[in-house]
Design a binder for these strands. Structure first.
Length: 508
RNA sequence: GGCGUGUUGGUCAAUCGGUUAAGACGCCUCCCUUUCACGGAGGAAUGACGGGUUCGAUUCCCGUACAUGCUACCA
């Protein structure tokens, strides 16, 4: 008797895909896979004024990057095509009419100006936001206040109208939320939401119910911001006679900004220097680019893992999970109720962990595009060299973009940024040592780490120098700064000619 | 203003009435390393506040405070 689990992610294609959106997708995906169910992508494009070119394809790209591929979608179809609400437009009106016939909805002719006027006139200190509620509806121009003839005439004249739900008086509407338990609302305090707009498109309220029903959705997950309109949706399910089929709801906690309070927004990312969108988003109107986690150098697996743990945890100490492990362990009941402040440092930590655990050859492939971006001319190196470099510097890298910063000196002669470290303690002994060592290096037949190190160690004392006196200047000469892997390992890899060249550039 | 939801260390968080209130990130100290990292060992919470219920509350109930969301012919 159990229905097959079917969940859906229903974004509206209006711009970049936010962290919170990706997390909603992820929880949908994990839940569906855990229960061997279906994961549907449905595009909620009923607001034609907010349509943004390319946003839908962009969302698909983000899901693909994250490895959260829907089973059914506008692109790949499925048993419930179409998956774009704009293409389902014809479906909704019939249901709105059904509601009118049963007396649970009505036609309203009020113009936007009239609505504005109503709000202005009814605004009080103790009611700063007048709603189209049971008192107000008796004062407006709708099929409740007008006679049937008047209504018919207005429609015949082509007067634009909307369909509104008629909220009952003094009823307690309650629902069970998988995360929050029982939640109830007083119907008298919910307003008569518009269900069908004047352009014939449904609003979210009608569309979400009709489509969830038609697509046989069993569990509906969405952000906490939807909670206040949940009673409207519950009532529509009931009035349409589908109550038995209503999905189980779960309202996910919000992702908050790191400083202060409030929902994390794109602006916060710009302000604090971290991405909020999954991938780069280019506004087609302004051309403005907003950075994404992908382009910032995140591994999708790390990004997903981090998101999974932001608001949910399996109750064990382990924090690193493969997608399969997440699928296995995920349960909606363990989602935290309160919102979570986004912590970019922790996100970077996850990425660092994944970088360490990724095979060097694979990592080299991932890093290469970033290298090409940083210095296209520098990359005429073999994959083998890149792989070695990646292996040598990976423990210093949190983001893929860090690899160039940490390993550029393997490919290009570095700019000496810490010249003072060499100059301040320079003396004749050092000058003589390096001159002598260069000669030694030039004659070295077996160029490798160990030979270089022993050679250096044996030569330094002859000039009254300790190993420590010589190591740091050498590092700066080869690397440009006080960082990086072992100096001799670097020298081995960049080769004799380049090593000598870099030393000479300082010693003259 | 109204309605909803939430509140364990700077952050993410475990605890499903009885613990010295886990762990992770970040921060600080030390060790390792004659660089930077990595790694290792330490340090830092009287669980928003006030009432109950109970032999016993971080855990259950109520109130207050605070935070946040919604209050469009947007989703």
């Amino acid at each position: 008797m159990e229905r097959k689990v079917r969940v859906r992610f229903a974004p509206s294609p209006t711009g970049g895909l936010h962290l919170g959106g990706v997390r909603t997708v992820l929880y949908n995906y994990l839940f569906a896979r855990h229960h061997k169910g279906d994961f549907v992508l449905r595009i909620e494009d009923t607001d034609q004024t907010r349509f943004v070119e390319g946003a839908e394809q962009y969302i698909m790209n983000c899901l693909e990057w994250c490895g959260l591929i829907p089973d059914e979608s506008p692109e790949n179809g499925g048993p419930h095509v179409p998956y774009r609400q704009s293409e389902r437009k014809h479906l909704y009106k019939d249901y709105a009419e059904l509601l009118i016939e049963s007396g649970h909805a009505y036609i309203a002719f009020d113009t936007p100006e009239e609505l504005e006027k109503m709000r202005a006139e009814n605004k009080r200190d103790d009611n700063t936001n007048p709603q189209y509620d049971q008192r107000i509806r008796g004062l407006m121009r709708n099929s409740l206040t007008l006679s049937a003839e008047e209504v018919a005439a207005l429609i015949a004249q082509g007067t634009p109208y909307v369909v509104r739900i008629k909220m009952p008086e003094n009823e307690t509407i309650s629902l069970t939320d998988m995360i929050r338990g029982e939640i109830s609302f007083d119907s008298s305090l919910v307003d008569d939401k518009v269900l069908l707009k004047a352009d014939g498109m449904p609003t979210y309220h009608l569309a979400v119910v009709v489509d969830d029903y038609l697509m046989q959705i069993t569990h509906a997950f969405r952000g906490e911001e939807w909670l206040p309109s949940a009673p409207v949706h519950v009532l529509i399910w009931k009035y349409l006679g589908w109550k038995e089929k209503m999905p189980l709801w779960a309202h996910l906690p919000l992702i908050l900004k790191p400083d202060g309070n409030g929902k994390l927004s794109k602006r916060d990312g710009d302000r604090l220097g971290f991405p909020v969108f999954a991938m780069n988003w280019t506004d087609p109107k302004t051309g403005e680019i907003t950075k994404g986690f992908k382009e910032m150098g995140f591994l999708p697996q790390a990004f997903v893992n981090m998101l999974a743990m932001l608001g949910w945890n399996p109750g064990v100490e382990q924090e690193l999970f493969t997608m399969d492990e997440l699928v296995q362990r995920f349960s909606m009941e363990r989602v935290h109720k309160g919102g979570a402040k986004f912590n970019f440092d922790k996100a970077k930590w996850f990425n660092h962990q994944y970088i360490q655990h990724t095979d060097n050859a694979v990592l080299a492939g991932l890093v290469k595009p970033f290298f090409l971006q940083s210095a296209p001319e520098a990359i005429q190196v073999s994959g083998e060299i890149l792989e070695k470099v990646v292996g040598m510097v990976k423990d210093r890298c949190h983001l893929l973009t860090d690899f160039w910063e940490q390993g550029h000196f393997f490919f290009v002669t570095p700019e000496i940024k810490e010249m003072a470290v060499i100059k301040d303690k320079w003396n004749d002994q050092k000058q003589q040592f390096f001159t002598a060592w260069i000669t030694e290096l030039e004659n070295m037949s077996d160029w490798n780490h160990d030979a270089l190190e022993t050679g250096c160690n044996e030569l330094a004392p002859k000039f009254g120098l300790k190993k420590g006196d010589v190591m740091l200047p050498l590092r700066i000469m080869l690397v440009g700064g006080k960082f990086g892997p072992g100096v001799f390992a670097i020298a081995e890899l960049i080769g004799k000619e380049e090593t000598i060249k870099r030393i000479k550039s300082i010693t003259g």
